[in-house]
Design a protein around this nucleic acid. Sequence first.
DNA 1: ATAACAAGTGAATCACGATTCAGTTTTTGT
DNA 2: ACAAAAACTGAATCGTGATTCACTTGTTAT
Lengths: 209, 209
Amino acid sequence: MAYRETEKMRTRKAQVRQRILDCAFACVRQGGFQSAQVTQVAASAEVATGTIYRHFESKEALFAEVFRIATQREVDKVAEALATPGKAPDRLATALALFAARAMRGPTMAWALIAEPIAPKVEEERLIYRKAYAEQFERAIMDGVAEGSLPAQDARLTSTCLVGAIAESLVGPLSPTQQASNPLPDDLKQQLIDQIVGFCIQGLTGARR
Amino acid sequence: MAYRETEKMRTRKAQVRQRILDCAFACVRQGGFQSAQVTQVAASAEVATGTIYRHFESKEALFAEVFRIATQREVDKVAEALATPGKAPDRLATALALFAARAMRGPTMAWALIAEPIAPKVEEERLIYRKAYAEQFERAIMDGVAEGSLPAQDARLTSTCLVGAIAESLVGPLSPTQQASNPLPDDLKQQLIDQIVGFCIQGLTGARR
DNA sequence: ATAACAAGTGAATCACGATTCAGTTTTTGT
DNA sequence: ACAAAAACTGAATCGTGATTCACTTGTTAT
């Protein structure tokens, strides 16, 4: 008898797996899921195509995991912003601005997470992602209603409207293509974000801040 | 010498072309652009695959035209709703409700027009479509600002937020898949639409209607 | 050193759908 | 009826990219 899996090997395997994940992530960040090819991921991770399949069930499985990781990051950031002390409208404004700013900094990834059409298995992850967001915003909105800083409303619905308004105004008409060609200067970006957040908060509170 | 193109033939050709367009339209309505295959369109129009290429440059060209037609229909409806007499907020509320109701009645098509990712040539059409919408809503918002029924704002941006909020709340989380499996009863649909429009108008005016 | 097994390789294969095109049918004017 | 010109047909081809697998290399225990 011989070869027994050892700690060293387990570590090395995990590293390769991680490198593949990182490279896949980079591919998506750069060109979205559409342009993410197994061959490219393999090349940039410096492994053979076949190796990908030693670490992941399929392309879909790999990218589902990439999606999950990217998503978790964003949701955590939003959760963090919402966890600060203060009245609900202020916390929401902060979180929305953060969400918008991050989407703007990485529009391709934002588009990929929010709207880009993808394989069913990845789409499932998107549902989870959306639910996670909805829950964050919903909770804050419900806090606001409870403390009287927001009028009564269907928190689930309005949280969805928030995400839609931001997503569309950031990655819709000012779409991926345009983003690459004409990057806005920072001050205009900030102004745009302020306006979008203004609209959203007004939609929630019925009043200008 | 012989065959000279005759009126009869020109008509017949136009009919075939139209039948292909109609069937392609039906395909998109049913399954979005993603699932629209040339072979299927041909089959349902009862022509050979090759015939499609006698009438259209390419698959992209065919679907670009389908997109244009579907789009024009929607934009016309919105334009009509906005053309009624009255104060801007009321006209906008009517138009938004109409937009939402139509999207809800045909969610797959709505998704295809608003957000489904597609070939570049079709994407170009989408840009035109979005501009057409933006122009309609923008004009109404600017009317409102002028007549004092809306506070000063960046009409372009807010009109985009409107579309995003509606699109996301109708075809996002309550996505194509879900729509098929659990169709809402009419009264709840109406209620949902009212709430969405409420959020939007509040976002514009800063006040409940 | 060697046996036993796992991990890695990448060219070959497969899947899928758009597109082509040689052959067939239809239409038209004489 | 016939020849010229389209229009139609659909099986074959092509392109693209995921997936496989026979083979090579690396690792471990004896």
